[in-house]
């Protein structure tokens, strides 16, 4: 996929790559990608879903270690919490159950913040994660706007 960011290349050293691998695994274990596909229509396309997952994992990997670790643990708790609030397993739940369950998860303390934050990140990453197809023009040398009345130049 041409527009997808190469997260591995962005990771500057081995520790970064390890952090990215851990958050990617935790995110996968959370099953939240299924929730996003139901709640956020633009994320239903596989390319958009991949960009979303990449941005969420990359962002969480960039957090300070204590926060990264906390997110990792909480993401892995999502399936159990989902089962508690809906009585259904997240990985086989119907779209209606997924939507209702996600809404209930979002109202929980702490875990709700994780679900809301990752959802917001997923939306951003899916839609603003594509590299520009056309190179940006360099800044102009002209100054079309007016300078301050008291501009000392």
């Amino acid at each position: 996929m041409s527009g997808a960011p190469d997260l591995g290349a962005l990771a500057r050293d081995r520790a970064d790559r390890r952090a990215l691998a851990r958050t990617t695994r935790a995110l996968r274990a959370s099953g939240l990608a299924r929730v996003w596909a139901v709640r956020y229509p633009p994320l239903r396309e596989p390319e958009a879903a991949a960009l979303a997952g990449g941005h969420v994992a990359g962002s969480l990997a960039a957090l300070a270690p204590p926060y990264r670790a906390a997110f990792g643990v909480l993401l892995r708790l999502v399936p159990a919490a989902f089962r508690l609030v809906t009585g259904r397993r997240l990985e086989v739940a119907s779209p209606e159950v997924l939507a209702a369950g996600a809404g209930r998860l979002e109202r929980l303390p702490v875990l709700g913040t994780v679900v809301r934050t990752t959802g917001t990140l997923a939306c951003y990453g899916a839609l603003d994660g594509v590299r520009p197809a056309v190179a940006a023009r360099a800044a102009g040398t002209e100054l079309p706007e007016r300078a301050w009345p008291n501009d000392p130049r």
């Binding site: 527009g3 960011p5 962005l10 941005h55 990359g58 962002s59 603003d128 994660g129 520009p132």
Partner: peptide
């Protein structure tokens, strides 16, 4: 880079 990459 994409805006999301730059954000990270």
């Amino acid at each position: 880079a994409s805006p999301a990459e730059n954000m990270r």
